[in-house]
Amino acid sequence: MVNLNVNIGGLELKNPVLTASGTFGYGTEYSDFIDISRIGCIIVKGTTLRERQGNAYPRMAETPSGMLNAVGLQNKGVDYFVEHIYPTLKRINTNVFVNVSGSMVEDYVKTAEKLNELDGIPGIELNISCPNVKEGGMAFGTSCASAAEVTKAVREVYKKSLMVKLSPNVTDIAEIARAVEAEGADSVSLINTLLGMAIDAEKRRPVLSTVTGGLSGPAVKPVALRMVWQTAKAVKIPVIGLGGIMNAQDAIEFILAGATAVQVGTANFIDPSVSVKIIDGIEDYLKRHKFNSISEIRGMI
């Protein structure tokens, strides 16, 4: 029996596989296909202080080995979450994080404060990297000063595990990671989507209603891997790697690059059971190479 347990900033997970926000709904969408309680941690969709309708359709474009999305944080707001969604989530027998988004520091703080009260939610993922909202979102994640400011403000009110999700749309992601680490982040997750664009040549129009959107899927994996490797060398807090992970081998690559855990995102759309397959695949890999625990291979590169 190999040990798949990992610790992400004071919180023990039964395995290093998380599901990425915005790709796994509230978890229950997937329960016909897998036992979702097997997942190390489910990160539910981006939640904002007030309800958001998101961007106009079309919000998605298929691209080579990936997809662009411009959903724009459609959600019913944190109060609705607490009242209507949390009661179901707290019965799931694994860790559930809420991804927190906003357009002003105050929004992040108020949302985090409300989530801090929920016993069944051991942590939040602070989304300072959404490329699909007009104000805020990614703007916070592209400068050290603003990333630090929002992390600091949330840290003051949020007492549980605080993961900060970083944007790849920056010159030096390690610098941003250090800035949020200095303000008390317990872990960082990276990468959020890469800003991209698709054009329909026949119609001579952009494919997405917002023109630009966030690129995900295997197309971004080499970029994500490089950024995880750079960041893991720059900070002491755990790094959660994501970006184009489709199978256990991809997940192992991120862990070898220094990630403590990984998030599986877009792959859930193609195979709703992929997260569980990745957990099993990691275990098989460790057995095959005669390692006793996942931590033995972390950061070997």
Partner: peptide, 23 residues
Amino acid sequence: ENTMACGIGACLCCVTDTKDEGH
């Protein structure tokens, strides 16, 4: 028929706008 990713309500890509419930 809209362009769709997950097919199970997780990704919120395939929305249509409605009079009563928005997207």
